[in-house]
């Protein structure tokens, strides 16, 4: 892999690591929030819905700045987490948090759509057969929404790979630390003679994005066929 310089390679590896952890850690929350929004009636439901979708409509720089205000080492929440040994500011973990927050609305939307399509009557039938709510979710609901979960996961991952504004605002652009693929492309374009490096990273971005898309389509179609039982 000597067609990428060490700095370029660092950016690709960091982006993959950031996106992987961002997606993995936000998935359980994404499923839970989607389930709550789809099935439960509770006070403040619209507020929660708005909060989840906020990163989709806010300028990413604003989201990044809000993250810095909440999770910076000077902020109460950031200070509290720092005492527990968790630091987000100017670390790759911060880039993962920013990517997770930005990808969250896409993930929740995809999962919620598939949840809305599951017939609650099947869940009722499972209850009459002796299944508790948790078992109903594991044995009936989750398998039926699996195609939506896959699509939501891939969308979240793709968003994480491409996230730029919130990341650069929250954790800056430190090579090897917080310089993700988009940040690196931006940095290379700022220096004379960096175009060739930027172009190589653009090609990598294209390959990763297209592979993710094709993989998700194949996987979702296969699972959907299995779920429908045809």
């Amino acid at each position: 892999m000597d067609w990428l310089s060490p700095q370029e390679w660092d950016a690709v590896a960091l982006s993959l690591r950031v996106s992987f952890w961002a997606t993995l850690c936000s998935l359980p929350f994404g499923i839970f929030i989607a389930y709550a929004l789809s099935r439960w009636q509770f006070w403040g439901k619209q507020a929660l819905n708005g909060l989840v979708h906020l990163p989709l409509i806010l300028p990413p720089v604003v989201t990044g700045y809000l993250l810095l205000l909440s999770f910076g080492t000077q902020a109460p929440l950031g200070g509290l987490l720092q005492n527990l040994g968790i630091v987000f500011a100017f670390r790759w973990t911060g880039a993962a948090l920013a990517a997770a927050v930005m990808g969250f609305p896409l993930m929740v939307r995809a999962i919620r759509l598939s949840l809305d399509a599951v017939d609650p009557k099947l869940e009722q039938a499972a209850a009459t057969l002796g299944a508790s709510p948790l078992w109903i979710f594991v044995t009936v609901t989750l398998p039926l929404i699996l195609p939506g979960v896959i699509v939501g996961t891939i969308l979240g991952f793709a968003k994480a790979m491409g996230e730029f504004g919130a990341t650069i605002t929250f954790v800056s652009n430190i090579p090897g630390q917080t310089q993700t693929l988009p940040s690196a492309i931006y940095a290379f374009l700022q220096v004379p003679g960096g175009e060739s490096s930027a172009l190589r990273l653009v090609v990598v971005s294209l390959i990763v994005a297209l592979s993710a898309l094709i993989l998700s389509e194949l996987l979702a179609a296969r699972v959907a066929r299995k779920v429908r039982g045809t």
Binding site: K121, T128, V140, K226, V227, G229
Partner: peptide
Amino acid sequence: PAKRRIGYVFQEGRLFPH
């Protein structure tokens, strides 16, 4: 319902498709 030990056959069957 899960603890009632009452079987229910629905009009539309409601078999689990997966």
